[in-house]
Amino acid sequence: TETYKYDDKREAEKAAEEFRRRGITVTVEERNGTWVLESK
């Protein structure tokens, strides 16, 4: 599991889209005002 942090929800979702395009499952969730993207 890799974790990436973003200040902006849009950025996180854009990154998530890129991962999914490569066939990687990711989750995006907000933690304490930071958007956390996790690849499984």
Rank of each mutant, 00 (worst) to 15 (best):
A15Y: 04
R31Q: 08
T27E: 06
T1L: 13
D8W: 03
E17C: 10
E17H: 06
T34K: 15
E38H: 11
F19L: 12
E18L: 09
T25A: 13
W35G: 00
D8K: 06
R22D: 03
T1P: 11
T27K: 08
E18V: 07
G33T: 02
G33M: 03
E2K: 13
R22E: 04
A15P: 00
E17N: 07
E30T: 04
A15W: 06
I24R: 08
G23L: 02
V26E: 00
R21C: 08
Y6A: 01
K9A: 07
E11K: 09
E2H: 14
E13V: 07
K14G: 04
D7S: 14
E17D: 10
G33W: 02
A16L: 05
V28P: 02
T25L: 14
R20Q: 06
E30I: 07
D7G: 11
D8E: 06
E11A: 12
E11D: 10
E13P: 00
G23W: 02
A16G: 02
D7Q: 13
Y4N: 06
A16P: 00
G33N: 04
E29W: 11
F19N: 01
E30M: 10
K40P: 11
W35M: 01
F19W: 09
R21L: 09
T3W: 12
K5L: 13
K9T: 02
K40N: 10
T34L: 14
T34N: 09
A12M: 04
V36F: 13
N32E: 09
T1K: 11
V28G: 00
K9C: 08
T1F: 14
K9G: 03
A12Y: 02
T25F: 14
D7H: 13
A15I: 05
E30G: 04
T3R: 12
T1M: 13
D7R: 14
T25I: 14
Y6L: 02
A16M: 07
G23N: 03
I24L: 12
R21H: 05
T27P: 00
R21P: 00
Y6K: 01
K40Y: 13
S39C: 15
K14A: 12
I24D: 04
R31L: 08
T25V: 13
V36Q: 04
G33Y: 02
T34S: 13
A16I: 05
T25P: 10
T27M: 08
T3Y: 12
G23F: 03
V28I: 14
R22P: 01
E38L: 15
E13G: 02
A12W: 01
D7Y: 14
L37I: 13
R21G: 05
D8H: 07
Y6T: 02
L37M: 04
E11P: 02
D8A: 05
E17S: 06
E2Y: 11
R31K: 09
E30H: 10
G23T: 01
K14N: 08
R31E: 06
E18P: 02
N32F: 06
I24S: 04
Y6F: 14
V26D: 00
K9R: 12
A12K: 00
E17K: 07
E38R: 11
R22N: 06
E38C: 13
I24N: 06
T3K: 10
E18K: 07
E17R: 08
E29A: 10
A12V: 03
R20G: 05
E11S: 12
D8P: 01
D7T: 15
E38S: 12
T1W: 15
D8S: 15
E29D: 05
T27Q: 08
T25H: 13
D8T: 15
E13W: 09
E38W: 11
R21Y: 05
E38M: 14
V26A: 05
E2P: 11
Y6E: 00
E18M: 10
E38Y: 13
V36R: 03
S39M: 15
D7K: 15
R22G: 04
V28R: 00
E13K: 04
V26Y: 07
E38T: 15
A16F: 04
F19D: 00
L37N: 01
D7L: 14
R21E: 04
T27N: 07
K14E: 11
Y6W: 05
T1R: 10
K40Q: 12
E13A: 05
N32Q: 06
G23V: 00
F19G: 01
F19I: 04
T3S: 10
W35V: 01
T27R: 09
L37W: 01
K40F: 13
R22I: 06
F19H: 03
S39K: 14
E11F: 04
R10N: 11
I24E: 05
Y4V: 08
V26W: 02
E18T: 06
E30S: 07
E2N: 13
R10G: 11
G23D: 02
E29K: 11
V36T: 06
K40M: 11
E2Q: 14
G23E: 01
K5Q: 12
S39Y: 15
R10M: 13
R20S: 06
E18R: 09
K5H: 14
E17A: 10
Y4P: 05
D7E: 12
R22V: 06
R31G: 03
E17Q: 09
W35E: 00
R31H: 09
L37T: 03
A15R: 05
A15L: 03
G33K: 03
D8F: 05
E2V: 15
E18D: 09
E30W: 15
D7N: 14
E17V: 07
R31W: 08
D8V: 06
E13D: 10
E38F: 14
A16Y: 04
N32K: 05
G23R: 02
T3V: 13
G33E: 03
D8G: 05
D7C: 14
E13L: 12
G23K: 02
L37P: 00
Y4K: 08
Y6R: 01
E17L: 09
E2I: 15
V28W: 03
T34G: 13
G23I: 00
K9D: 02
W35P: 00
R20T: 05
S39D: 07
T27D: 05
T27S: 09
V28F: 04
R20L: 08
R20D: 03
V36D: 02
T34R: 12
V36I: 13
L37C: 04
N32G: 08
T34Q: 15
V26M: 08
W35I: 02
T1N: 10
A15T: 04
K14R: 11
T34D: 05
L37H: 01
K40A: 12
K40R: 10
E29R: 11
E29F: 14
E30K: 08
S39W: 15
E2G: 11
R20P: 00
E18G: 08
A12E: 00
L37Y: 01
T3E: 09
R31M: 08
T27F: 11
D7P: 10
A16V: 06
W35A: 01
S39V: 15
G23A: 02
T25R: 10
T34M: 15
T25E: 13
I24P: 00
K40V: 13
R10T: 10
Y4Q: 07
E13M: 13
R21W: 04
A15F: 04
T34I: 15
V26C: 09
V28M: 09
V36K: 02
R20W: 07
R20N: 06
G33C: 04
F19E: 01
D7I: 12
T34A: 13
G33P: 01
V28Y: 03
E13F: 11
E11V: 07
E29V: 15
Y4F: 11
I24H: 09
E29Y: 15
L37G: 01
D7W: 12
Y4I: 09
K40I: 13
T3P: 09
A12S: 02
Y6S: 02
V28C: 06
E38D: 06
A12F: 02
V26P: 01
A12I: 02
R31V: 11
T34C: 14
F19Q: 03
N32T: 03
R21D: 04
I24W: 12
Y6Q: 01
Y4M: 10
S39Q: 12
Y4H: 10
Y6C: 03
K9M: 07
E11T: 10
K40T: 13
E30Q: 09
E18Q: 09
V36G: 02
V26N: 00
E18I: 08
E18Y: 11
R21Q: 08
R20M: 07
E2A: 13
D7A: 15
A12C: 07
N32V: 03
K14T: 08
Y6V: 01
T1V: 12
A15Q: 07
G33A: 03
K40E: 10
G23P: 00
R22Q: 09
R22F: 06
T1C: 15
